[in-house]
């Protein structure tokens, strides 16, 4: 089971390598207002995390997520079977 920091590292990698984000990613960054992700950007990030950690995120999960830290915690939780 990954810990949230491992997931956060993967989030930063996807943002940098696949979405071309050049700035540093902070745990408190809002995915939309701070990182400027549109729906395609968000889906690119989610697909990367689902493939890397073998989880499937649901719409209900997404409704609770706004920041990098919240997304990392959610993925870590799902990967742990919760």
């Amino acid at each position: 089971m990954p810990d949230p920091s491992e997931v956060a590292t993967e989030i930063a990698r996807v943002l940098r390598d696949e979405l071309g984000l050049s700035r540093e990613v902070k745990p408190g960054d809002d995915l939309v207002s701070d990182l400027q992700l549109d729906s395609v950007g968000l889906l690119t990030l989610v697909v990367g995390l689902e493939d890397r950690f073998r989880v499937a995120l649901a719409e209900e999960d997404a409704s609770r997520v706004r920041t990098v830290a919240e997304l990392a915690a959610l993925v870590a939780q799902r990967a742990g079977g919760n």
Partner: peptide, 8 residues
């Protein structure tokens, strides 16, 4: 949907 950027 929270995956939609229009949510906020």
């Amino acid at each position: 949907s929270s995956w939609c950027p229009g949510r906020c």
